[in-house]
């Protein structure tokens, strides 16, 4: 998968985390908001990982 597609996936992860964070905190459902936080962590890690481990098919 090319870098922009990874970045798109990361962006979608950020956006998908939003309803989980809202519903989880509003309805006192820790499992839901923890899932949301994990999704955000994974999403934010993508560009950092790509910086230090660039994809083979990408120009630096």
């Amino acid at each position: 998968m090319r870098e922009p597609m990874w970045q798109l996936v990361a962006m979608l992860l950020f956006l998908l985390a939003l309803p989980a964070l809202s519903a989880g905190t509003e309805n006192d459902a820790p499992a839901l908001w923890i899932t949301g936080l994990l999704a955000v962590t994974a999403a934010a890690a993508v560009p950092v990982v790509l910086k230090f481990a660039p994809l083979d098919d990408e120009e630096s």
Binding site: L18, L21, T25
Partner: peptide
């Protein structure tokens, strides 16, 4: 607390939207 971080993160994402 982590719940505060969760709320802050959710609001930040919405601000970004």
């Amino acid at each position: 607390p982590w719940e505060t971080i969760a709320v802050a993160t959710g609001k930040g994402i919405w601000d970004a939207v």
